[in-house]
Each structure stands twice: as structure tokens, then as C-alpha cells.
Design a protein around this nucleic acid. Structure first.
Lengths: 258, 258
DNA sequence: GAAAGCTGTTCGGCAATGCCGAATGCCAAA
DNA sequence: TTTGGCATTCGGCATTGCCGAACAGCTTTC
């Protein structure tokens, strides 16, 4: 492990979570490293455009270079590239927004967001990071993870985002078992009050889960008995098509049950 | 300058530009560093989620952590935050897409994209990096930069993207002078065939340009004599409102002429 | 089928590198 | 004016990260 790089990233993380700007001293305190060291790191990060110094206050904040790199990741991401057309298709078919996401640590990163067609103003959620236990996307992915990885997730932090968020490992385990049976996952206002989700897993050529794809929209529209079934079928269908696009074997979902 | 950090970022940059995945050996060759060194860097970057190793081929590609950081930058970005409502307003008012961008080196980074209202499928351009000389946004910003920075830009690379791209420093200089007079910049298919742009600069509380805001859309809709004038006025108006939101002095545009 | 070439990876020792304590210069508030 | 806090610079110690060479796994080639 290269210490300097580790620390540099730690600095970036701290800048990302904290208030807009942070001074060298405060930063040094937070990550427990001497002030001159942090200063040196910041200077190199600044030279690379990963950090910007406010000329007035001398404090530092994140820089635009990060967006460029982040975008490069998204462009190079095979799941995302392939998912775009499928997501658009599903969005217009179901009349709701579609999210495509991957699992990073304990969060689901939304890598693509197809807007609900013809709708009013919508906020783009690409780049958003959601606790896995609070969204259909996360549960769909988790359900098909190797058993060890799954218990790891269940043992980790399970934050509560809304009153409906499920934070009990036992209940989640039951839900995941059910997800493996029916092939899709639900969330009922566990992430956003008033919004529900229906998602299915996506597999790659090795047969492992690489992400998920699902609908997001008002509970009233997604979770009525009739709509729920229709949506679930559509989501599962599209997710399976996408998986096959990625070269997944037909039985991908079955093997991973672990 | 912390060498290790510099090299780590160089690795990320290389991964961003190159084909989806890159091996350790090839990477080491490209950046001119010994193979084990690159390996160590990759391992730390991987532990941080900035890089992912393909388990089949052993090659490396960018990781999701970068998106999280990139998004954190966008969220913390004051110009962007403040611009969102103004951009939406302008988009619905003008019936065209609105871009908000900042200058990074020789490129304009699009930090916000308000879709054309009610339109058909549109690709989100947030995160895109455009050569400054090929878009209205870039020219609007460049025109109000301190003189030295401006000559620096003009002396740098001026890539040609379409046949209409302007790559002659003299012509650009004339255009920029004009931009300073009328307060907005145009581009006529210099970035995308069939698309034009109208943009105006945005200033912060110190009176310096921090970015730009402008309309993007089909030439036929934006550049007809009547539309052009109307759009230009709207863009300039909104950009000025946004500047004042950021605390810019009233005379911001005038002083920066350099 | 063997062997050569290519990967990514590990090891150990040299010294360059990045680290830190203390001192500096700067600004703004008291 | 003084004081406190800030970002920044300096120089020497030793930790850290660097590289050459050797290893292990793989596909390609003869």
C-alpha cells in the first residue's frame, strides 16, 4: 500500500463529506497527519486539478478533474453502456423512471438514470450513492451475491433513511430469500417517502451479479396489485435481456444462490 | 510535489483515455515507471475503489469511487448549485437545452445540463469536456478572462472538431473582442454539426469570470435573425442574475476586459 | 505436447522521497 | 497595535516507496 496515495484519497474523501471548503489545519486534524504533509498532498492534487484552492480564504475544495475521471469511468463501464438503450425502452414502456446501478461497498451507485417520459421536472440521480438496504436495486443485487459477501453486507451498517427503511438483518435475509425465488426486489418508500422501486439483477458473462436495473416512481403507480405484477415482469424481462447482452449464461440467476 | 500521488493520478488519467482496460505492463510503459511501482499504485487505488481489476484478464479499469468524488465536487460547486434554478427557468423560457460550464485548462467542463422541455430523447452532457474554442460557452468565458490568461489560451492548442470550428488565433481574438462588446458569444456548428450555441459569462463576488451559461440547440431555431436576438437577451439576462446571486458587483463584466 | 513468450505478481535491499517539528509570514479580528 | 489563527516554508531524519530480478500462471507457437 502506497501511503502517500492512500492519504491523498483520504483527503479527497474528507473534502467530499465536509462542508464546501476545508483548511489545511482542519484537514490535518481530521485525518491525523501533520500539517505540512497535508499541505504537500494538497499542492500536488491542486496541480492535477483534483482540488481547488479558494484564493480568498486559502481553503481547499474538490476540483473539476474529478468529474472528468468520474465520467471516464461511466463511459468505460460496460454495464452502463449496454444498459442505456434498454433503460430508455423500459422507461417509455412503463412510463416511469429507470435506474441502473452497481454495488460499491455498502452502497448502490446509480450509473444511469432514464427519465420518466414526458414528465415534469426531474432531478438527475446519476452518481447518487444509496444504502443498499433501502432500495430495490440494492436488494436485487444483494440477493444474488455469493453467500459470504451477502452475510458481510448484512453484518455491516444498515442505515435508516425513512421510517419504512428495513434495518433488521433477519427481515432483510427473509426478503433476499424471497427475491431469489421471484427474481425481483421491491422497496416501499424505504428510500424516499412516496416513492417505490422494482428492480432485478443483471449478470455478466461469468454469471456473477454486476448490477441491477429497476423502475422508480410513486407508490400509487408502481405498487398497486395490477401494476406491480406488470412492472415486475417488464423489469425482469429487460434485466435478463441486458444480462444476455453482456454475455451471461441463461442460468445465471440460479447458480449464484449460494 | 508528492511523486507517488502525481504518478497515481497519471495512472488514472491513462486509464481514462485508453481503451477500457489496461494491463500493468502496458501502463508502466506508457507512463515510464517500473512495473512493480505501477502495481503498488494500482493496488492502493483498487483498495480505495478508484480502480477495478478485471478478475478474468487481470487488467485494470477505472472504479466507481471516482464517480462519487466527481459528484461531490458538483454538489459542492457553488456556481452549479445556484445555476440549477436559473438554468431550468431559461430552458423552459427559451424552449432549448441549457448548459452551465466552467473552464478547466483548455476545456469547458459542463457542470449542469437542463434539458429542452418536453423534448424527445436527449443525452445528458454533464461531465462533458469541450475544447474552449469550439463552443459559445468557452468563448464567453475566455472573452472575460484576464488578458494574460487569454493569450495563454490562444497560444495553446485549438483543436478542430467540425469543419466550422475556428482554429485561427487571430479570428478568435476578433471574436472575443466582439463578445466583450455585446456581452454574449455564439457558436455556429463549431462543436456539433447542426447545433448552435449562445452563451454569456458568469462572475463571482470578486468580479472574475467563474463560468458561463448558455443555450444549445438546432441552428435553425437559435440563429435565425429574430430568434438570435431574443435568445441572446434572455441568456445575458439570466447569466447576469446568476452572477448577482453569486455576489458579483454590478460592473463585473466591464472591469475584466483587460 | 513441450517450450517459449507473454502476462500479473512477489521479494529484498538501496536511497530517494516524503514526512514531521519548528519557524516564518500573512491576514484579520480584538 | 497586538494577538491569534491561518497557510506556508525549511531542513534533517528515517521511513517509504522505488526498482532489478526472480516467480507463477496463462495462452500461443512450433
Amino acid at each position: 500500500m502506497v501511503q502517500a496515495v492512500h492519504r491523498a484519497i483520504h483527503v479527497l474523501r474528507e473534502l467530499a463529506t465536509a462542508t464546501p471548503r476545508l483548511g489545511v489545519t482542519e484537514l490535518a486534524d481530521r485525518i491525523g497527519v501533520a500539517k505540512p504533509t497535508v499541505h504537500a498532498l494538497l499542492r500536488t492534487l491542486e496541480a492535477e486539478g483534483m482540488v481547488v484552492q479558494d484564493r480568498e480564504t486559502g481553503k481547499y475544495q474538490l476540483g473539476p478533474g474529478l468529474v472528468t475521471l468520474g465520467n471516464a469511468y461511466l463511459d468505460s463501464h460496460e454495464l452502463r453502456t449496454r444498459a442505456v438503450t434498454w433503460a430508455d425502452l423500459l422507461a417509455s414502456q412503463a412510463g416511469a423512471a429507470v435506474w441502473v446501478g452497481v454495488l460499491t461497498d455498502h452502497h448502490v451507485l446509480v450509473v444511469h438514470h432514464a427519465f420518466r417520459p414526458g414528465g415534469s421536472v426531474q432531478v438527475l440521480e446519476t452518481g447518487a450513492s444509496l444504502p443498499w438496504n433501502t432500495c430495490a436495486l440494492g436488494k436485487a443485487i444483494a440477493a444474488f451475491l455469493p453467500a459470504e459477501r451477502r452475510t458481510e453486507l448484512l453484518a455491516g451498517e444498515l442505515p435508516r433513511v425513512t421510517g419504512a427503511s428495513i434495518v433488521d438483518p433477519a427481515r432483510l435475509t427473509t426478503q433476499l430469500d424471497r427475491v431469489r425465488e421471484i427474481g425481483y426486489a421491491l422497496d416501499d418508500q424505504e428510500l424516499t417517502l412516496g416513492d417505490a422501486g422494482i428492480a432485478a439483477p443483471v449478470f455478466d458473462r461469468t454469471g456473477e451479479v454486476v448490477g441491477g436495473l429497476g423502475l422508480v416512481g410513486p407508490v400509487e403507480r408502481l405498487l398497486t396489485e395490477s401494476a406491480r405484477q406488470e412492472c415486475a415482469i417488464a423489469v425482469r424481462e429487460v434485466a435478463r435481456s441486458l444480462s444476455r447482452d453482456l454475455g451471461a449464461p441463461r442460468n445465471a440467476g440460479l447458480r449464484a444462490c449460494g
